[in-house]
Design a protein around this nucleic acid. Structure first.
Lengths: 234, 234
DNA sequence: ATTGAGTTAAAGTCTACACAAATTGGAAAT
DNA sequence: ATTTCCAATTTGTGTAGACTTTAACTCAAT
């Protein structure tokens, strides 16, 4: 491997700047030297410094303003990134064998709460799908999903007995907007039954609404098995 | 071709590419034209195309590999970004008036579960702080935090009656690593009391562990009030 | 004091080019 | 049929320089 001496890449600069921030050399609110000066210090072009600082700002460490310069941001403005994995990937990442099972699938007029939530006409047709995701024989996630028939007419001919509704949707309809919500909910009778836990138990829950342009496509509520934790490091 | 010749910024390219993905013109798994060809199409340099595609890849829309090219990612591999706000900011963003209250503050040897979790010596000294965050007079969050004295000796003289431990830590110690976990837990007697909800109720909970280099600094468990939802759109 | 206009420093972006690094796909060797 | 190796392609990153946009600052006029 070729160790290029003295080449300062934007990654080196990022590392160095981060180190100075973390060591306290550049405290929060400190104004950094301008790009040109840093370019001289690191003996590279301003372009390279620019990229390094731009990315650090993007990652929430710095704040940059034209003419005002670049300053160190107080820590807690940071952002966290979570990967939203497919259930299958998540199960397999944990060393399990993924298994899917359809629970029920039927046409229904959209219930009132759903119509309100997705801004549907009252009584618009919807496909209601409930299914389970297992890791081996252990329940992993119970999914309760509504698909708006007007937005996805093909769903009338869909069969979710082998292919999960999420996979089917991904293959079938593109989407433009997603709203993802996490909350702690209480296991109702059916979720408790499928996830094999006592009714009323706290359940980590994700709600996902997907739109295609302005048209709501699907609303999904996913109940995770007991003990589920969503973790990220940064 | 209604290609506008006035502006060919990387933002225009991002917009156009996104539109093509969303319109279905470039379905998931589609291989995009290479940078050089796109540069010709947009009549700009490859550098500009590179920046546009790089950012889109960063945002989770594309996957790029040398020699293999750039392809559209199937949707669910996407990442979601959550801003981790300060409680104060969150309360104020919801239109409330933030209020802080210290519940208790005392030195204790770290309990076993904490020593295990943070890889401490058994019986290492710790500062245990419990406090409340209110929106007006409505409970918003109950915080239960441990601070490792060895890592933050100044904590011996800290007074958390006016300034919250998180704000104090941010001002006092830098940190290098954070692990953030979300889960649904069951309100124990004290959390239930402070948050004004029945014992055993599901509570959306965040755990945050912070390190300085290899040294664990603090472990915080934050219990949110009933009905709390963490939402993101993308 | 307050307002307003001009100056100017700093970041933002683009061009044009060069070389580096990865990795695919195929040819050659086994 | 399989493995090894090479070349071609594509993205990754850097240099050098120019022009643009924003907004902090200054100073004069109200």
């Amino acid at each position: 491997m070729t160790q290029n001496t003295e080449t300062t890449s934007y990654k080196d600069i990022k590392r160095t700047v981060l180190r100075r921030i973390r060591s306290g050399e550049w405290q929060p609110d400190t104004l950094l030297p301008n790009e040109q000066d840093l370019a001289v210090e690191f003996s590279c072009t301003r372009t390279t410094v620019n990229r390094a600082l731009r990315e650090l700002a993007d990652e929430g460490f710095l704040e940059r303003r034209r003419k005002a310069g670049t300053r160190v941001l107080s820590a807690p403005h940071r952002q966290a990134r979570f990967t939203i994995p497919l259930v299958r990937d998540e199960v397999e990442a944990l060393g399990g064998t993924y298994r899917y099972a359809l629970v029920s699938q039927q046409f229904l007029p959209a219930p009132e709460w759903l119509s309100a939530r997705l801004a549907l006409q009252t009584g618009q047709a919807a496909m209601h799908v409930r299914c389970m995701h297992y890791s081996g024989n252990t329940p992993f996630q119970f999914e309760d999903r509504w698909i708006v028939v007007d937005s996805v007419p093909q769903v009338k001919d869909a069969d979710f007995s082998a292919l999960g509704p999420n996979d089917w949707l991904v293959q079938t309809v593109p989407f433009t907007n997603v709203e993802l919500t996490f909350l702690a909910s209480r296991a109702d009778a059916s979720a408790a039954g499928f996830l094999d836990l006592p009714e009323g138990e706290p359940v980590f829950t994700a709600e996902r609404i997907t739109w295609l342009q302005d048209k709501p496509v699907t609303f999904a509520k996913m109940y995770f098995a007991a003990g589920y934790r969503m973790t990220t490091q940064f």
